[in-house]
Design a binder for these strands. Structure first.
Length: 880
RNA sequence: GCCGGGGUGGCGAAACUGGCAGACGCACAGGACUUAAAAUCCUGGGCCGCGAAAGCGGCGUGUGGGUUCGAUUCCCACCCCCGGCACCA
């Protein structure tokens, strides 16, 4: 056989796989399934090695599982809609459809040249009408269930181009095209009611035990659940006007010394009208509102507020407290209004200090138990003193004072839990209990109740763009919002030819698209001209893969029942929140439509680390992109695949290294020569099982290493996804096989003269080597499929490796029968015992104490203790 | 600030259940083969000190403590790095 020249092998085997439809699958209830999925790709044009790493990880899993006997679904597709293609069209005039299709073709070629084992017959692109038709279908179902709704919402607006801007099109607060300062505008937009599932999404996260903790944390943060209470503060002298606040610390309500409305709060305008100087107040509020958007991004905002002049009644104390409007209260969280407790909240404290508002402590740290008697005595004395003082001065109650000595020690504000004080009937209660009792009291009094608040907001999906799924809705002057009837789906994206980046939604400029009869009354009506967020496309594509050509339904529920959930899903951490939460949301929507029977779409998630070059993320603009194609030309697909898997565990970031890649190439060459060297001997090996009794020690050792390597590699891939250590285990095996070869009649693989025939070997050697080499080639094949297929064929196998059985191992064989056990004396290794692996503790102890290396240290000392860890170590402790 | 992850040779890393720290690889050095180079094969190496060498001694997994015969691994305190959330009441 010739030297290792992988390039020719790559295309040879890729063609064979394709011809054999080797990776295409069908539902087969008799075999266990494995759905292996990598996040589908945005067709940006070129995949670099950073992208490609993810596909290789998935491919190693898919190929391994196939050999392990699973029916493996491993599909790929394209997240093909989106803004970049449209931006490119605006700049270059190339229609998004053309650029997208061209990019897909190129990237598909790249993946095929890497030998990724995809079921290409299931390929889909979200810009295909046969795909996005089902986006529209689902949208209408969600509309019917109240899960899709329309409301006013603000967008970035460029007043010069007269258009909505996506967040990515806003650069430093300015329009990406004309550099104009961006404004905000309110438009009617569509939302998905993901908040209806907030609690479920959060709770279910606890059961995603094969997801990285990091991702679950991010999702929990994003959902942001807080428990608290809503409490109503009626306006003083106008009980009909109520201010509802949300608080997580109702226990501090006796310390609420003012109320703050967010500038967006609906009541603000009304109060302004009735205030002493409406114009001034409105001006101030308007200032807060504009300040909000632009400044919030840039950094810390100084707290600013304005007194409305109105007062509200604290329902617990019955005190009237001032009502302010301030920039630090968010209009879209909670009720958009807060009660301010400066003594126990950082922000309220800062604000109160700035504007001279009263600060009233109502929580103190719980005193240590042994101080209680002491405190009671002090309390008595202090009350006595306060009473006397009050009497003497003729002033009101002085009872507040006595706690001073406790809170004075504490930072102000004191934000921790503790014990309520100066809180009427709730004084003396620990915070947790005060909260419960106060909520009960509020409910009883009809001015509040316990509630849960989420940070998560409903998902705004309207995009005023062209290259996306048209929203299948029609607005009729008489019937209002009417869905497009199912039998008229898909609402196809019309061919727009001019991309100016100016004006309305691009679709609004296509009259034949916009002007349609109302499906209900037949009178002229207008189509919705916005398109859907592309995250809608990617929230359910993994279901479509189960049944990608279905013309009648989004997917056949039976196919999904077989294939889903996805067993192994891998992709970048950048999708940890949005894509993965939206997909979990959609799974529940489909579930509630009766179409799927699981809650969670992805059983296991792996977030792969990025590949850096010179310490930076690869990007075209930085000019540090490593193009896989050039690497393929030099070293072949397998060296690249192997290197990327070997360099680090899959989740870790890695720094690209050309010499590391060369190292992997060298290793494959080493395997190649090993197999080439031993092939003749293996071909002439007798059939039948290995006669274990006839093996010499070296052969036994090779056999042990073989079985142990199979054990390690299998576990590393299947259980731990430690693909790097799987590779290093195989490298160890190869090293041992080389060392073994040196002592056989065949000599060292690399040293044999070209063409020289391998001398005859012991039959046992040939059998042991056959077992070793065939196991190696099969284990390595998920990493280096082309090379291994070729070697497998050379070893005399005709059926290919794709569905070859994964090597089995015998745990007994994998164990060493002799082990070297270190002996420690006072924690330092002083000797080594070579003993049978199953040597008893007594034997070990006796041998250890007799070891000359050990006796040199124990001589003349008293042995206090001997600890024996069977099969591992002996530890001897001497007296001082 | 809150939450999560991490810190091990010149570098990427390994150590799976508390048991020989540094497997495997990169880079490097030496040797073999060669007229020579490349390729290949073999050998070496945590750091410091002593020694011509075999070897001997000490130190060593971010820092400081603790538990233990024994700690990269468990506990406490702290430092640093990465990521997420953040005027979220």
């Amino acid at each position: 056989m010739s030297d290792y020249h992988p390039q020719a092998l790559d295309s040879k085997w890729q063609e064979r796989w394709q011809r054999a439809r080797a990776f295409e699958v069908a539902v087969d209830p008799w075999r266990p399934k494995f759905y292996c999925l990598e996040m589908f790709a945005y067709p940006s044009g070129h995949a670099h090695v950073g992208h490609v790493r993810n596909y290789i990880i998935g491919d190693v899993m898919a190929r391994t599982k196939r050999m392990r006997g699973y029916n493996v679904l491993h599909p790929f597709g394209w997240d093909a809609f989106g803004l970049p293609a449209e931006n490119a069209a605006i700049k270059s005039g190339i229609h998004p459809e053309e650029s997208t299709r061209a990019n897909i073709a190129h990237m598909k070629g790249q993946l095929q040249r890497l030998g990724i084992s995809y079921a290409w017959e299931r390929e889909l692109a979200t810009c295909d009408a046969e795909y996005y038709k089902w986006n529209q279908w689902l949208f209408i179902r969600m509309f019917e269930k109240g899960l899709a709704y329309r409301k006013k919402s603000s967008v970035n607006w460029c007043p010069v181009d007269n258009t909505v801007l996506a967040n990515e099109q806003v650069v430093d607060g300015r329009c990406w095209r004309c550099d104009t300062l961006v404004e905000t505008r309110d438009l009617e937009q569509w939302f998905f009611r993901i908040t209806a599932y907030a609690d479920e999404l959060l709770e279910a996260a606890d059961h995603l035990d094969k997801w990285p903790e990091k991702v679950l944390t991010m999702q929990r943060n994003w959902i942001g659940r807080s428990e608290g209470a809503r409490v109503t503060f009626p306006l003083e002298g106008d009980a009909a006007t109520k201010i509802e606040v949300f608080t997580t610390r109702i226990d501090t309500i006796f310390g609420a010394t003012f109320v703050v409305l967010g500038p967006e709060h609906p009541l603000v305008q009304a109060l302004a009208e009735r205030s002493s100087d409406p114009a001034a107040l409105k001006r101030q509020v308007q200032a807060f509102r504009t300040q909000d958007r632009t400044k919030r991004i840039s950094g810390e905002l100084e707290k600013q507020g304005v007194d409305t002049g109105f007062r509200a009644i604290n329902p617990f104390t019955k005190d009237a407290v001032p009502v302010w409007v301030a920039n630090f209260v968010l209009g879209d969280y909670g009720t958009g209004a807060i009660m301010a407790v400066p003594a126990h909240d950082e922000r309220d404290h800062e604000f109160a200090t700035k504007y001279g508002l009263p600060i009233r402590p109502v929580v103190i740290p719980i005193p240590p138990v042994d101080d209680v008697a002491n405190i009671e005595a002090k309390m008595e004395a202090e009350m006595e003193r306060a009473r006397a003082e009050a009497e003497a001065s003729g002033a009101g109650s002085g009872s507040v004072g006595f706690f001073e000595e406790f809170w004075i020690e504490q930072p102000m504000p004191f934000t921790e839990y503790g014990m309520s004080v100066d809180s009427g009937e709730f004084s003396g209660l620990p915070t947790e209990e005060a909260q419960k009792k106060m909520i009960a009291a509020a409910r009883k009094g009809g001015f509040g109740e316990g509630t849960v608040q989420f940070r998560l907001k409903d998902w705004g999906i309207s995009r005023q763009r062209y290259w996306g799924t048209p929203i299948p809705m029609i607005v009729c002057p008489t019937d209002g919002i009417v869905p497009v009837p199912d039998d008229q789906l898909p609402v196809e994206l019309p061919r727009v030819t001019e991309f100016t980046g100016r004006g309305d939604s691009p679709l609004a400029a296509v009259p034949e698209f916009v002007n349609v009869p109302c499906p209900k009354c037949g009178k002229p009506a207008r189509r919705e001209t916005d398109t859907m967020d592309t995250f809608v496309d990617s929230s359910w594509y993994f279901y479509r893969f189960a049944d990608p050509r279905n013309q009648k339904q989004a997917f056949d529920p039976a196919a999904v029942r077989y294939w889903l959930p996805v067993d192994f899903y891998s992709g970048g951490v950048e999708h940890a929140i949005l894509h993965l939460i939206y997909s979990r949301f959609f799974a529940r929507v489909f579930r509630d439509l009766g179409m799927v029977s699981h809650d969670e779409p992805f059983t296991q998630l792996l977030t792969q680390g990025m590949v850096l070059k010179d310490g930076n993320v690869m990007s075209k603009s930085k000019g540090n992109v490593v193009d896989p194609d050039s690497m393929l030309q030099k070293f072949g697909a397998d060296a690249l695949r192997l290197y990327v898997m070997f360099v680090a565990p899959p989740e870790k970031e890695v720094e690209w290294s050309d010499s590391g890649l060369e190292g992997s190439f060298r290793f494959l060459g080493r395997v190649w020569r090993l197999v080439d060297h031993w092939a003749p001997a293996i071909h002439t090996a007798p059939n039948g099982p290995i006669d274990v009794a006839a093996l010499n020690p070296a052969e036994k050792s090779v056999r042990r290493k073989t079985h142990d390597t199979v054990r390690r590699v299998t576990g590393d891939i299947e259980q731990r996804q430690q693909l790097n250590t799987a590779v290093s285990a195989m490298m160890e095996l190869v090293n041992e096989l080389y060392a073994f070869s040196e002592h056989t009649a065949t000599g060292q693989p690399g040293r044999r003269a070209e063409g020289a025939a391998a001398p005859a070997e012991r039959a046992e050697t040939r059998l042991v080597m056959r077992e070793a080499v065939e196991a190696l080639v099969r284990m390595l094949s998920p990493f280096a499929p082309h090379t291994c297929e070729e070697l497998w064929e050379q070893l005399g196998h005709q059926d290919g490796l794709t569905h070859a059985a994964w090597p089995a191992f015998d745990a007994e064989v994998a164990k060493a029968d002799e082990v070297v056990i270190p002996v420690q004396v006072n924690g330092k290794v002083r000797g080594r015992l070579t003993v049978a692996a199953d040597a008893s503790e007594q034997e070990l102890e006796r041998a250890a104490l007799a070891d000359p290396g050990v006796t040199a240290y124990t001589a003349g000392k008293t042995v206090v203790k001997v600890v024996v860890a069977k099969g591992r170590l002996v530890s001897i402790v001497l007296s001082k």
